[in-house]
């Protein structure tokens, strides 16, 4: 079964799961199906993942398949690379994306390049899961999104779910993919009991196994006046703004990218072609990243498509501040999104 649109599963499910539980369910179903799938990382065992990305897997599958590692990201991510080269399908967790600095060589020089350097003779089927995002005063080293950094470097797919159903389906697709897939989950979408959660972080999730295709964006709200291209937690802020502005006569289309490598350029162009207006909302840094990339793809296709200048709502090129007042001044909040949309539609 393949869900091309997570809002319309083939068999409607009333069962509601948090994003984290949906993600774990996807992992568990693949571990049941394929003995080569295993999980390793820091605190993925008894703790169940700091952000509940592996809860219950140790009890169910045992320490041979759910491995707590030392705080040695280079060694254990490299280990996942080696295991994948030998045909296993590791899921390896980098606790925070912010920690990539201690292990990036294994990620971008090994995980992402071996297939290419081997002329296609070696495959590296692995999933690198990592928590991203801010909004809870965790400071400059524990709040970044950084997906643009990973997406910039060739050889790894990058998926960024925003809902429980997508979290499960994208996880299953990522595990089955023969390429390395970086799976970046925002802490604010996980539905954690100890962190403010968006209202859509607990939603119906089909019980059976299914794939959400990597590289296919989802038009989560159709609209005719302006296209909001976004991903991850910002999808929910964008939907909130769209609901609010609908009352003011502004009809927003919201696109949840779900994957940024590959980037579903077709869905973006189709939408902007209709609305003529584009706002990109991205919790990553503003410059040299995803927001510029989306606008460039539109400009490369047809600059005349835009009837108003494109707008970007992103983190304006500074480290994420600690103080709540400062952090919320730079995150892509609903307020900033609303202002950008109104500016773009000219009201």
């Amino acid at each position: 079964m393949t869900l091309t649109d997570a809002t319309t599963p083939t068999r409607p499910s009333r069962r509601r799961l948090s994003t984290s539980k949906a993600m774990v369910e996807g992992i568990a179903q693949e571990m049941e199906r394929d003995p080569d799938v295993f999980v390793l990382g820091e605190d993925v065992g008894a703790y169940g993942g700091i952000f509940s990305s592996t809860t219950g897997l140790l009890d169910r599958f045992g320490p041979e398949r759910v491995l707590d590692t030392p705080i040695s990201e280079t060694a254990f991510i490299g280990m996942a690379v080696g295991a994948a080269v030998e045909g296993m399908r590791p899921i390896v967790e980098l606790m925070f994306a912010d920690f990539f600095g201690v292990c990036m060589d294994q990620i971008y020089n090994h995980m992402a390049k071996i297939h290419f350097e081997s002329g296609g003779n070696v495959r590296v089927p692995m999933v690198l899961t990592t928590a991203v995002g801010g909004g809870y005063s965790d400071g400059a080293q524990h709040s970044q999104c950084l997906w643009g950094t990973f997406a910039h470097l060739p050889g790894m797919k990058v998926v960024v779910p925003s809902t429980p159903a997508d979290a499960k389906g994208l996880m299953i697709s990522a595990i089955r993919d023969d390429n390395p897939v970086v799976y970046m989950f925002h802490k604010g979408i996980m539905g954690l009991p100890w962190m403010a959660k968006n209202p859509r972080s607990v939603e119906p999730v089909p019980e059976e196994s299914y794939e959400v295709p990597i590289g296919k964006a989802n038009v989560v709200r159709p609209g005719s006046d302006v296209t909001i291209v976004t991903l991850s937690l910002s999808v929910h802020h964008a939907l909130d703004v769209a609901d609010e502005l609908a009352g003011d006569g502004v009809d927003c289309e919201v696109i949840d990218l779900r994957s940024i490598v590959p980037l579903d350029t077709g869905t973006i162009l189709e939408s902007v072609g209709r609305t003529g207006r584009l706002v990109v909302v991205d919790e990553d840094y503003l410059s040299f990243g995803l927001s510029g990339e989306v606008i460039a793809r539109v400009a490369e296709s047809d600059p005349a498509m835009l009837r108003a200048p494109a707008a970007r709502v992103a983190v304006p090129d500074l480290p994420i501040p600690y103080a709540r007042s400062l952090e919320y001044a730079v995150l892509p909040t609903a307020d900033r999104i609303r202002r950008a949309v109104l500016r773009t539609v000219g009201t």
């Binding site: 690379v81 080696g82 295991a83 080269v85 030998e86 070696v122």
Partner: peptide, 28 residues
């Protein structure tokens, strides 16, 4: 960057970074 899956041989141009993948092969 010589990769030969037939003999499970590989190499890396980055100093010391060939060690971690060997651990994963051994684990497998």
């Amino acid at each position: 960057h010589l990769f030969d899956p037939g003999t499970h041989f590989s190499c890396s141009g980055i100093i010391a970074e060939g060690y971690p993948p060997a651990l994963g092969q051994a684990l497998a």
